[in-house]
Simulated scan of single mutants.
Amino acid sequence: MISENLHKIQQEIQDSCALVSRQASDVHLVAVTKSVDTSMTQTLLENGVRDCAENRVEQLLSKKQALRNYPDVKWHFIGNLQRRKVKSIINEIDYFHALDSFKLAQEIQKRAEQPINCFVEVNVSQEASKQGISPEEVDSFIQDLASLDKIHVVGLMTMAPIDASSNERHQLFKTLKQLQQRIADLQLTHAPCLDTSMGMSNDFSEAIQEGTTFIRVGTALFQE
């Protein structure tokens, strides 16, 4: 099942890239393993996946420990991170996809042993139910992070509304890509901002067409 689903997703990545003359190798597939156990996560690793994402601190730590025989796996934290839990997780991950406040950045600065690859979460759709800073705040927020040498802004992240149409998704993803490019053009040492993390199981094709470099896929990998 997982092998077949993975093959379908990889094919869709290739097809989506082909539509806009991109290389499939430019898109990183991050497997969202939050809904499956360690055994199914291991099956993914045996099929060549090397990027796994969790949204709960305890679950990530447990799986990383259980799968320590796969030291080349990159671990991504994609959930809302409470400041009181930063200490226990921040030095165990390779990417943090949900930096959304300066106070959280300060806590990471305090606890991190080395610079942390962070995506700044942007609420492009302006949904009240979503975390993230507003598009208008992106420039000033990233400039403020310059004083924190443990924060390395690799890119921006967003999520489209679950009920958004394909056209709406394209527009949201295009907006984030434009914001990312604008920051990248500033050539900031602390924020090269060359990547975007956008696109999930139901909309990663649109995200790829709009230039994303990281997609976060869970449901499509594990559905029967």
Rank of each mutant, 00 (worst) to 15 (best):
P161L: 04
Y70R: 06
L186Y: 07
S101K: 11
L44D: 03
K174D: 01
Q11F: 11
L44C: 04
L81Y: 12
T213W: 03
D163W: 06
R111K: 10
E113Q: 11
S205H: 10
S147Y: 06
G132L: 06
S201M: 14
A146S: 15
W75K: 08
E206R: 13
E168I: 05
A24I: 00
L6S: 03
Q59A: 14
R50G: 07
E136N: 12
F119H: 07
Q187D: 10
T41I: 15
L29C: 06
P71A: 05
S197F: 02
Q209F: 02
I90Y: 09
A66R: 10
I13L: 10
H152L: 06
E92I: 01
N47H: 15
E58H: 13
M1D: 14
Q143I: 14
F222R: 13
M200D: 15
L156C: 02
Q187Y: 09
Q42S: 04
I90N: 09
V120D: 00
V122Q: 03
T33E: 02
M40R: 15
S16G: 09
S129H: 08
I9V: 12
R22L: 14
N69W: 00
S201E: 08
D37R: 11
P71S: 05
A18T: 05
E113V: 00
K8V: 12
V49T: 11
M157L: 05
Q109F: 02
I162S: 11
